[in-house]
Design a protein around this nucleic acid. Structure first.
Lengths: 256, 256
DNA sequence: GATTGCAATATTGTCGACAATTCATCGTAT
DNA sequence: ATACGATGAATTGTCGACAATATTGCAATC
């Protein structure tokens, strides 16, 4: 299971919520992030209520929480679905992530403590080890998440950190980086992270921002390429003549 | 009434919601933004249910929506409150707004159409007229909101636009810019906006970002100064010996 | 007199049932 | 055969009542 890739309780920690609601939200959140619920997939209240042995009331609360997280979107009398971004929306999303991750790196370089720098270097070193060992993709992704987490904490901006995490999750569910990233790609990423660690440690904020944005850019190119490929193969061989998925949601509401 | 300062239906437009829930969310949203509900004030479900003549169910949904908007935060078995940021949290918030508004200005300079530029110049001109006429503060703020709205639309990034609007609302409820901004302050702001219009129209994206961030910085200084003053006078003459407001929420959850 | 434990109250959390609405299907008319 | 409208099934929205929990006030104790 990929459970725990990004701290089991993604929701429970943010605002104290009733145990039932927290459990439902956490498990469904894991289902979405780990890909068991796919983008665009419909989520029925009664199904979740049956699965957790509760009434629909706490399920509805949990769905609202996941909407806050940005993982789900609901529509009037049409129910909830896992967010499903178009390619241009994903590009928009990455532009945003780039700006915020750049800010986080800049702030970390400016405000980070010696201990923060050491933890960050250790996290990057861990990424290197995972790569050299040939660890499974899941482990390597977990290591990179840990590095990002350290950076978020070092930047001393809870708001920027939370937003970055939220948007990163949103981007994460739209690619299969875990399975599909080849060795050359990962070596390039490692090089970026190493240089970022150096820049942050040297307190050069401009350089940190540039390097951070470069990491995001690399991931964006990977993701968009993958999405375009998937789109092409999907349209070339339409398995279902009647497309169950509707036209493409406007989803300007995903800003939450 | 300040109602309509920022487009009556702040919530209803984002995602289609049931009419009852939309009405409740919109009205409460107006109450918060216009200051009838003050930061930190508690919001009881039954009160709202009585006020709108419904049961508590739609009220709960509305509260979740407002939590998505970031105007309200709830705690386990403790209910909902209007967000109440500390000074350092407000500073954090402005850092974020600065980054995003800078991005929006940059994107607007890059992607804006001729028509966008004209609407933006017109909006800035309207600000000037409002100032020269000595219009009430409400009208002048409305004009500046309009200018910001045009810029958000011109940047062609729905995500950045939505986030900026959300964070701006959050900042707005923490100052009394409408009443307290003096003439010198407004002249300086006007100058910034004018120069920003020129930069955007000239498609100089770097300059646009710098000028946009300068506008935010000016507002940040105003807001923080005002908050610090209020804090000092409040602690100097504590009207209530038993402070009803609790220690200061952690509110890392306001990232939503 | 201050503090701690307990009880009463207020408020939110959860439940099951019913109403409102949408979507899919089927029948009918053109 | 196709287009249009009614009908029924599936799903979400709303309701009122009850359960669980936090807060408040009081009393007993140190």
């Amino acid at each position: 299971m990929v459970r725990g890739l990004e701290r089991g309780g993604a929701v429970a920690g943010s605002a104290r919520v009733p145990p039932l609601v927290a459990q439902i939200a956490d498990e469904v959140s894991d289902d979405i992030i780990s890909g068991r619920f796919k983008p665009g997939e419909r989520i029925r209240e009664q199904d979740l209520a049956d699965r957790f042995g509760t009434s629909r009331a706490p399920v509805r609360e949990a769905i609202r929480l996941l909407e806050i997280e940005g993982l789900i979107e609901t529509e009037h009398w049409r129910g909830a679905r896992v967010v499903n971004l178009s390619v241009s929306q994903v590009e928009d999303l990455f532009e945003m992530i780039s700006a915020i991750f750049g800010l986080v790196a800049r702030l970390a370089a400016r405000h980070g403590s010696r201990a923060d720098f050491e933890r960050f270097s250790a996290a990057v070193a861990e990424m290197q080890v995972r790569h050299d060992e040939g660890s499974p993709g899941r482990e390597r992704v977990r290591a990179s998440f840990e590095a990002a987490r350290v950076l978020r904490e070092a930047c001393a901006s809870p708001l920027a950190g939370e937003m970055l995490l939220k948007l990163s999750r949103l981007a994460f569910i739209h690619h299969r980086l875990v399975q599909a990233a080849d060795d050359a790609w990962q070596l390039e990423a490692l090089e970026h992270w190493r240089r970022l660690a150096g820049a942050v440690q040297g307190r050069s904020d401009d350089e940190s921002e540039v390097l951070a944005r470069r990491i995001i850019k690399q991931t964006e190119i990977f993701t968009v390429t993958q999405l375009r490929d998937a789109e092409r193969t999907a349209s070339a061989q339409p398995s279902k003549p009647k497309p169950r998925t509707r036209p493409q949601r406007t989803a300007a509401a995903l800003a939450g």
